[in-house]
Amino acid sequence: MTTPRTDRSHWNWLLLLPIAIPLIPALYNAVEPRLFGIPLFYWLQLAFIIIGVATTTLVYRMTRRNG
């Protein structure tokens, strides 16, 4: 190993998405449109889980060390 190891990676910036988006009520604080009768406030926040899983999985894969 010649270069010192680091946790820094450009991919980490992606993690800002699942941190910031759920903290902006303007995006989801409404009743319409409903999904299966569920107001936007509830189903959209549940859908944010997908952003969380997708970004953390991607960052995990891209920053994985060999070996």
Binding site: D7, L15, P18, I19, P22, L23, Q45, I51, T56
Partner: peptide
């Protein structure tokens, strides 16, 4: 609605934890 804070809370926590806990 206020009680639903528990959901964004558990979404936000993992990306933060990922960088810190390793």
């Amino acid at each position: 609605a206020m009680g639903f804070f528990a959901l964004p809370y558990t979404i936000v926590t993992y990306p933060i934890a990922m960088l810190v806990l390793i």
